[in-house]
Simulated scan of single mutants.
Amino acid sequence: MSTMSRRFGAYDVTMLRDGVVQASTDHLVHRRGEDALAQARARIGSFPLVVNCFLLTGDNGVTLVDAGCGTAWGADFGKARLALADLGIAPQDVDRVLVTHLHGDHVPGLWEDETPYFPRAKILVPEVELSFFTDEAARQSVPEARRSGFGLAAQLIKAYGARVQSIPHGPVLDGIEAVALPGHTPGHTGYRIGAGKDGLLIFADALHLAAYQPQDLDLCLVYDLDADAAARTRLALLAAAAEDGFAVTGCHIDGYGRVEREGHAFRLDLF
């Protein structure tokens, strides 16, 4: 079992490691062009990307933020399910799942074939995200290689039906706020738990490479549907975290951290 637990606000937050993707420099893009991309590729080389989701426990029961890959990516993934079992949490114990966005390493863990894996849970999806990925006109506007979210949205609705509920940005539960972080997908969303320096922002996929992107704000990954918007979002959240002092973590970050400003860039110190 691979977990990391911390207390933020009114919740115990446990990071659940679902698996690890071995990525290559082919996954990198750079907003400043080919020379900057070549330098980044030489600097970084191949790299692992952890895949995380999160367990939140508090007075309002059991909440997940995302659910990992399930069995969709093979035997090396879906380990978040095993981690929950090791923690004594059965699928029927989960009250709700807060979805950050509709990508294949975040939501297939919600179902098995066409059956809900969490039989009681409500699935709360940001309304911008759900609206986009259920819109046929939007589907036609997206390159074919980036259309997986549309199929995932259909599978989710087929499995959970009316228990899939769209949510606006802002407060969603006591002590939890949905925060718009667009760019990676149109409705890409983080969840802010607690307030001030005792709070945590789960920023999902707004940042993939903790050791590189805070210093090189124009470095992106091919998974970002809108790299320009993703870079603007990343700058804004890093600046806010440095200014306000709240902790951060993400679905591809190996721990929790705090952000420090370094000139025109930033540093993410994990703890």
Rank of each mutant, 00 (worst) to 15 (best):
M4Q: 13
R6I: 00
R7F: 10
G9D: 08
A10T: 11
Y11M: 06
D12M: 10
D12R: 15
R17N: 03
V21A: 07
V21F: 14
Q22I: 08
Q22P: 04
V29D: 12
H30S: 01
R32N: 07
R32G: 00
E34I: 06
E34V: 08
A36P: 00
A36E: 15
R41Y: 00
F47I: 08
P48Y: 06
P48G: 02
V51L: 13
F54Y: 10
F54K: 02
F54R: 01
F54H: 13
T57C: 12
G61F: 06
T63M: 02
L64T: 08
D66P: 03
C69E: 10
G74N: 03
A75F: 10
A75L: 09
D76Y: 04
D76H: 10
D76L: 08
F77V: 00
F77I: 01
G88D: 05
G88Y: 07
I89D: 03
Q92R: 06
V97H: 02
L98E: 02
V99A: 04
D105M: 05
V107H: 06
P108C: 08
G109L: 04
G109N: 03
L110N: 04
W111E: 02
W111I: 07
D113M: 09
Y117G: 02
I123E: 01
V125M: 10
V125K: 11
P126L: 07
E127L: 09
V128T: 15
V128Y: 05
V128I: 15
L130Q: 01
D135E: 06
A138S: 14
A138V: 05
S141N: 12
E144I: 12
E144C: 01
R147K: 07
S148C: 03
G151E: 05
G151T: 01
L152S: 01
A154H: 07
A154Q: 11
A159N: 07
A162I: 00
V164P: 07
V164F: 14
S166N: 08
V172L: 09
D174Q: 14
D174R: 15
G175P: 08
G175V: 13
I176E: 03
E177L: 09
E177F: 13
A178H: 13
A178L: 14
A178F: 13
A178I: 12
V179W: 10
V179P: 11
L181C: 05
P182N: 09
P186H: 06
Y191D: 02
Y191L: 05
R192D: 03
G194P: 08
G194I: 06
G196I: 10
D198R: 10
D198L: 00
D198K: 10
G199M: 06
G199C: 08
L200G: 02
L200P: 04
L201C: 06
I202S: 03
F203A: 15
D205G: 12
L207G: 00
Y212I: 02
Q213G: 08
P214A: 13
Q215K: 13
L217M: 14
D218A: 15
V222Q: 11
A227R: 11
A231I: 14
T233V: 04
A236C: 05
A241E: 02
A242G: 15
E243T: 13
F246S: 00
A247V: 04
A247W: 12
V248G: 05
G250D: 12
D254R: 12
G255C: 10
Y256S: 01
G257W: 08
G257V: 07
R258G: 05
V259G: 03
E260W: 03
E262G: 03
G263A: 14
F271S: 07
